[in-house]
Structure formats: C-alpha cells, structure tokens
Simulated assay, not measured.
Amino acid sequence: MKVVPIYASAGIVGFESPAAEYTQLGLSLDQLLIKHPEATFIGIACGDSMQGVGIFDKDLLIVDRAVNTKQMSVIVANYNGEFICKLLDKNRRVLLSANTVYKPVSISEIDEFRIEGVVVCSIRNHDMPFHELTECMR
C-alpha cells in the first residue's frame, strides 16, 4: 500500500490535488496500526453503547492483548460468556458505556470476567456494506 504523507482536510478547498507533488511511501496498515502482531486481533463492534468514544456499530476494532489496561481504557472482555467492548473503571471495578442510555455494570466476585485486550484503534468503513463482510451477532 502506498501512503501519501499529508493530512487531508475534510473540506473541499481547490481544484488541483495537493497530493500530486508528494512522493509515495511504502507502508502497510499492519505497520501503521499494529504494534504487537502476535498479540493483536480484529473484532467488529455491535451496537451503539460506545459512540461517545467514536466507536460505532460495525466498526472494526483493533484489539491488542499486549497493552496493559489503564484507568478508563477501552477494552474487549468476556463478561459472563459474552464479548463486550466497554470503558474499564479499574478503581471501582465497573464497566462503563460511552452512551448515557446504558447504565454502569459492576464486576462482582461471582461474575466471569476476563479482559481479552485493549482497543487501540477503530476503523469505520464508509463504502462497503459490512453485511457483505459478516453479520453482527446480537
């Protein structure tokens, strides 16, 4: 993949492509987005509970198992047999949504809870319908 080293404005400001004068650099998305390839997997977000942090339904999630969680990390976890994407309030042992419609969920001693990894990046596809890729499990 070739990457043009410019920042692109979302506004339309001219007729000639400003990228025309730049040379192309060889770079892969793997190199750009994945720091620990052996510990990284890709998931698909389901639902609207994480919209407040910019994660929308059917976004791709790049999840890194080698990254240590911090207070309020966005994580993917197995919570009572269900994979979830939430904010982790480590201090209070609470899972938070980034949408006020959803209430916080406490992690109790009887809950099955395992952090699968930290979401390091999310990717939104604006062109291809994701139902062609896979159907979101609900």
Rank of each mutant, 00 (worst) to 15 (best):
S28H: 10
S28P: 05
L29N: 07
D30S: 04
K35D: 12
A39V: 03
T40R: 03
T40S: 11
F41N: 10
I42G: 11
I42Q: 10
I42F: 11
I42S: 11
I42H: 09
G43S: 14
I44E: 10
D48Q: 10
D48H: 07
D48N: 14
S49V: 09
M50R: 05
Q51C: 14
G52P: 09
V53N: 07
G54W: 00
G54S: 02
I55P: 11
F56M: 13
D57V: 09
K58P: 07
K58S: 15
K58T: 15
D59S: 10
L60C: 08
L61Q: 12
I62F: 08
V63D: 12
D64L: 04
D64F: 01
A66F: 01
V67F: 07
T69F: 09
K70V: 09
K70Y: 00
Q71S: 07
S73L: 09
I75N: 03
V76M: 05
V76A: 11
A77Y: 02
A77M: 06
N78H: 06
N78C: 11
N80A: 13
F83N: 12
F83R: 12
L88K: 07
N91D: 14
R92N: 15
L95A: 04
L96G: 00
L96V: 04
L96T: 00
S97W: 04
S97N: 05
S97D: 06
S97Q: 01
A98F: 05
N99F: 00
N99M: 03
T100H: 12
T100E: 15
T100G: 12
V101K: 14
P104F: 03
S106V: 12
S106E: 15
S106N: 13
I107H: 01
S108Y: 10
S108H: 10
E109I: 08
I110S: 15
I110V: 14
D111H: 02
D111Q: 02
F113H: 11
